[in-house]
Design a binder for these strands. Structure first.
Length: 515
RNA sequence: GGGCCCGUAGCUCAGUGGUAGAGCAGCUGGCUUUUAACCAGUUGGUCGUAGGUUCGAUCCCUACCGGGCUCACCA
């Protein structure tokens, strides 16, 4: 970055000089520990509610540490705002209350430095909770200056690239990741208490299966084989169901070699779980229960605001079939009847569908790569295409979409009453797909046929078509009980629950082009 | 990859075809209950990079680099 080109900028040099003076005063520049008896959070929690009179009577003695955020200086007095996590407290330093050595230390401090202070808690004239410092000690120097206190750190790129600076300055960032941790903790507890067992399955796979997506490729030297970063844990988790584990879940990273956008990061976190003896209708119940409970736990209410929209998690969530959603959100342009006819679907996709670029993937295709034509798409794909371009963005409140076509659902069980469709739903919130769930196809012969179908899709140029996994078919041949499975996007869910407009706000270190 | 926009001091931003300015931060001085503290003074920039037009470019043009939004692929 620019600092590496100018390693000794004036500001850094000044701070190095101050550090040298601090060492001259006999302070350890990098002490091994800090002598504290509580955190700033503790002090605020214990004394934040007490009045000046109560504190005057009690004179609580505390030893705390934190980072100096700002210094306000008054000659022989100063106020240091100390920060730790999202808690803040003001330290009041007086020359006559400190030793000469400590006062000289104070004079060589900068915003950003870490210090520990010992003193009594009181309130100033302006009623600010403060610590009257009796002893000041040095913990670490910030050689680089903090961003300005007025505007803070607003440069979007630097916020993501140097998240540590973002965290120092922007309290909201810490709160978002605290909320994210609470979300994950709630989900873990939910599944643990429902007798699911948490497992971990391979991130590096010889075949990237379980989702329609393009994978990252890597290489194992000793075996001299290419491996794929997983796009989903699905096929491994179902192998565990075959093995008799009955209820499993995994919260972990998936990797998809695709674009980056406000709701897409190349690596993202999914909850995926499988539940033997249940079907997709049971999953609807479970999903409503899980999310409703989660939102009430995290937000203390059944509604949240996201990007200015009110989103209600009140049960039951609305439910539409895919065709109903298309008809409903086409503003009368499309009737349910019109969706049964393939020729008509082609016309509709051409009219309402997103205009595809010349290439299928938006980047330079290898020479001779076939491009999927709307005219050659099967009926199911046309329907799904139409749904995505017409209905998806309107599904703001949590909404289940059911009756997916079998052609776009290679791992789902067909409906008994109409095998053109599968027992599957996706849950949309804020116009984003949050969950995808279905009754798992457990007929090995049918699964083999579906894989073959995907192969021909791939040959027709669909690079996201599912790959054949022979060992998975073999696993099914050992017998998998009726099972329902679901994946939930944790990052997107966190976006909704933290009112974050982009996925990069809920991922600590989102992927950036290296500099 | 396409479209639109952006890149000037550590931060946030002005600005002009004649080689730059403000506030904050920094530094110096003053100030023993302030909180965007205040007052006075002061340091600091090869104006993203490389070419081109021009007597002369930070400003105009081109390319490149980086970023944002958006579209596409996709969850």
């Amino acid at each position: 970055m620019q600092d590496e080109e100018v390693p000794e900028s004036e500001l850094i040099r000044v701070r190095r000089d101050k550090l040298a003076r601090i060492i001259d005063l006999g302070f350890d520049p990098y002490p091994t520990r800090a002598d504290i008896d509580q955190t700033i959070e503790d002090v605020v929690a214990k004394y934040g509610g007490k009045s000046a009179q109560e504190l005057e009577a009690e004179k609580p003695h505390v030893k705390i540490a934190g980072r100096i955020l700002t210094i306000r200086e008054f000659g022989k007095t100063a106020f240091l705002v100390l920060s730790e996590k999202t808690a803040r407290i003001q330290a009041y330093c007086r020359k006559d209350a400190l030793s000469e050595r400590e006062w000289l230390l104070y004079q060589n401090l900068d915003a950003g430095d870490w210090v520990s202070v010992e003193g009594t808690v009181f309130r100033t004239k302006t009623n600010e909770l403060s610590v009257k410092v009796q002893h000041l000690n040095f913990l670490a120097k910030a050689l680089r200056p903090l961003p300005g206190k007025w505007h803070g750190l607003t440069d979007v790129e630097q916020r993501y690239r140097q998240r540590y600076v973002d965290l120092i300055v922007n309290d909201d960032v810490k709160r978002i990741f605290e909320t994210r941790a609470r979300i994950v903790r709630y989900i873990r507890t939910y599944f643990d208490t429902h007798n699911f067992i948490e497992v971990e399955t391979p991130m590096m796979q010889p075949i990237a299966g379980g989702a329609a997506a393009r994978p990252f490729v890597t290489h194992h030297n000793a075996l001299d084989i290419d491996l794929y970063m997983r796009v989903a844990p699905e096929l491994y988790l179902k192998r565990l169901i075959v093995g008799g584990m009955s209820r499993v879940y995994e919260i972990n990273r998936n990797f998809r070699n695709e674009g980056i956008g406000y709701r897409w990061n190349p690596e993202f976190t999914m909850l995926e779980f499988y539940w033997a003896y249940a079907d997709y209708k049971d999953l609807i119940e479970l999903t409503e229960d899980l999310l409703n409970g989660l939102v009430r736990e995290v937000k203390g209410s059944e509604t949240v605001t996201w990007r200015g929209a009110e989103i209600s998690f009140r049960r039951p969530f609305p439910k539409f079939t895919m065709k109903e959603a298309i008809a409903r959100f086409s503003k009368g342009d499309i009737s349910l009847n019109g969706l049964g006819d393939r020729d008509n679907l082609v016309k509709l996709v051409k009219k309402f569908g997103e205009h595809r670029p010349v290439t299928a993937d938006g980047t330079e295709p290898p020479k001779g790569t076939p491009v999927p034509e709307i005219a050659s798409m099967n009926e199911g794909k046309l329907l799904a295409e139409l749904f995505e371009s017409i209905a998806e963005e309107h599904l703001i409140n949590p909404t289940f979409i059911t009756d997916f076509p079998v052609e776009v659902s290679p791992l789902s069980k067909q409906r008994r009453d109409d095998p053109r469709y599968v027992e599957r739903f996706e849950l949309f919130i804020g116009g984003m797909e949050i969950a995808n769930a279905f009754s798992e196809l457990n007929d090995p012969d049918e699964q083999a046929r579906r894989f073959q179908q995907q192969v021909s899709e791939r040959e027709r140029g669909d690079e996201e078509a599912h790959r054949v996994d022979d060992d998975y078919v073999r696993a099914l041949e050992y017998g998998m009980p009726p099972t329902a499975g679901e994946g939930v996007g944790i990052d997107r869910l966190t976006m909704i629950l933290t009112d974050s407009p982009t996925i990069r706000d809920v991922i600590l270190f989102p992927l950036m082009r290296p500099r």
